[in-house]
Design a protein around this nucleic acid. Structure first.
Lengths: 237, 237
DNA sequence: TGTACACTAGCCAGAAATAGGGGGGGAGGG
DNA sequence: CCCTCCCCCCCTATTTCTGGCTAGTGTACA
C-alpha cells in the first residue's frame, strides 16, 4: 500500500489540468475502495471550486439548500488542524442530523474523514473521504491511513494551486509593517486613539496607515480591511 | 527508515510537555544525521516560541539583530506552501548574503530546508533542517525525505498546539444566525444601512444583533467583533 | 407552562470613523 | 540621480457607529 501511495502522489504531482486531477481523485477512491473522495476549496471570496466523485444530484442539492451553512464538517473545518473523523463532530442540532440523513440517502455514506489544508493568502481547502461501514472499521481506516491522508491532501492542494496559478495572474497585496500593526491592533478591539498610543505615533498618522491599507486591500472601511487582512493571512488576531 | 519515521511520529504524538518535544527534536537530528533541527512559531504578534538544536549563541544573536526581518527563509515562508530548499531563495540582497555567512559561521550549516505549517486562527510555524554538505547531496536529501518532512512538521505542530491548549482553556461562544449574518456582511465591507437592507430588517434591529454579538464575543466594537468571530471560525469572509 | 432566547422595532446624544485636502524626510533600487 | 515606497504630521466637514433606553412577537425546551 505504501508504494502505491508514493506512486499516487507522483501522479498527482504530474497533473497539469483539473481534469487530470479529477481522474486521480477517482483513482484514489478505487485505491481505498471507498464510496467517495472530495477535494474542494473553502475559499472565502474566491470562486468556489470542487473535485468530487459525488453525483451531481447531491452536489446541486447541497449547493441549493446552502447546507454548507449548517454542515458540521465544513463548520468545524475552520477550527481544526488535524484530520477529523466525522463521527466526532457534534450532530446534535436538528438541522445537522437531518442533513446527515439526507447525505446518507444521497449516497455519500455514513462515515467520513476530512483533512483541512491551509496555504498562503488564506487559501483553505478540505480533502474528504466518505464511506459506508461500521464505526469500528472506519476508525481503523482513519488511524491506519492518517499519514497518507495528510500527504494526499497536501499534494492535491499543491497541484491545484500550481494549476490555478498557471492559468491566471493573481495579485497579492503586502502591507508595510506599520500598516499591518495598525490593522492588527484595530482588529484587537483598540480604537484609533489607543492604537496610535501603542504605536507611539499621532492619530493623524495612524489614519494614513489605515487608509493606505484600505486602499491596498480595496476595502470599504476599517472593518473590511481587517477582515480581508485576516482572511489573507496578513494579520492574526 | 520508514519504520523509524513512523515510530518517531508516535513518540512526538505522545509528548506532553515542550521539554519532551525538545528531546524529540534532538532525536530527529540524530536520526537524520544533520547539523540542526528547528521548530518555531512565526506568529506575527504572539509570543515567540522556538525549539532548536542551535546553540544559544546563534539564537541570541539572531534575536538581538532582528535577523528574522531580513532572513529570506522567514520572509519567503509567508508565500510558500510546499517545503523549500534554502538554495532556491533569493540571497542577492546585501543583508541576506551577510546573514548567510554569519549563519555558516554560527554552525547552522550552508544547506537547509524549511516546511511551512499553517493552523487555524493564523497559526504559522516553520520546521527547518540545516546541514553542511554539497548542493547535490542536499537536494537528494530533500527529495528523498519530502514526505517525511511534511509529516514531521504536521505532527510537531499538532503536538505543540495540544500542549499549548492544554495549559490555557478557551471559552466558546455561539452566534445566532442573524448575528453571524450581520457580522459576516459587516466584515464584507457593507455599512449598517446596506447590511440592514440585505437582511431585510431595520437598521435599528441590525444594531441589536451587532451589540448582542459584541457582548457575546466580549468585543469592544464592530471591528473587534468581526475579527474575533473570524478567528473563532464563526464566520468566513 | 413558564422561561429563555431569537427576532423585531423605535428614539436620542455623544463618540468615532471616513473623505477630502495639505505638508515633509529618509532609505533603497534602477 | 530620480523614482518609489515607507514613514511622519496637520486641518475640516460629513457620515457612521456606539451606548443608553423601552417594548412587542414567536419558538424551543424543560
Amino acid at each position: 500500500m505504501h508504494d502505491q501511495m508514493e506512486a499516487f502522489l507522483d501522479r498527482v504531482e504530474q497533473c497539469n489540468t483539473f481534469e487530470d486531477l479529477y481522474f486521480q481523485i477517482g483513482a484514489l477512491r478505487d485505491l481505498f475502495q471507498i464510496n467517495h473522495v472530495v477535494y474542494h476549496s473553502v475559499n472565502r471570496q474566491g470562486d468556489p471550486f470542487a473535485l468530487a466523485t459525488y453525483g451531481a444530484e447531491w452536489a446541486n442539492y447541497y449547493e441549493k439548500e446552502e447546507l454548507y451553512k449548517i454542515d458540521p464538517v465544513v463548520l468545524s473545518a475552520f477550527e481544526r488542524f488535524h484530520p477529523y473523523n466525522w463521527k466526532n463532530l457534534s450532530w446534535d442540532k436538528k438541522h445537522a442530523r437531518r442533513m446527515l440523513l439526507d447525505a446518507i440517502d444521497g449516497g455519500v455514506g455514513n462515515q467520513g474523514v476530512s483533512v483541512p489544508i491551509r496555504g498562503p493568502h488564506g487559501e483553505f481547502s478540505l480533502f474528504s473521504l466518505s464511506h459506508s461501514c461500521t464505526d469500528e472499521v472506519w476508525a481503523r481506516f482513519v488511524a491506519n491511513y492518517m499519514s497518507d491522508l495528510l500527504l494526499v491532501g497536501h499534494f492535491l492542494h499543491q497541484t491545484a494551486r500550481r494549476i490555478e496559478h498557471s492559468s491566471k495572474e493573481q495579485e497579492f497585496v503586502s502591507l508595510s509593517p506599520r500598516e499591518s500593526d495598525a490593522l492588527r491592533l484595530l482588529g484587537g478591539g483598540l480604537n484609533r486613539g489607543r492604537v496610535a498610543e501603542k504605536l507611539s505615533i499621532s492619530e493623524h498618522t495612524l489614519r494614513v496607515y489605515i487608509e493606505s491599507a484600505r486602499f491596498k486591500l480595496r476595502a470599504a472601511n476599517t472593518t473590511h480591511a481587517v477582515a480581508k487582512a485576516m482572511s489573507q493571512g496578513l494579520i492574526a488576531i
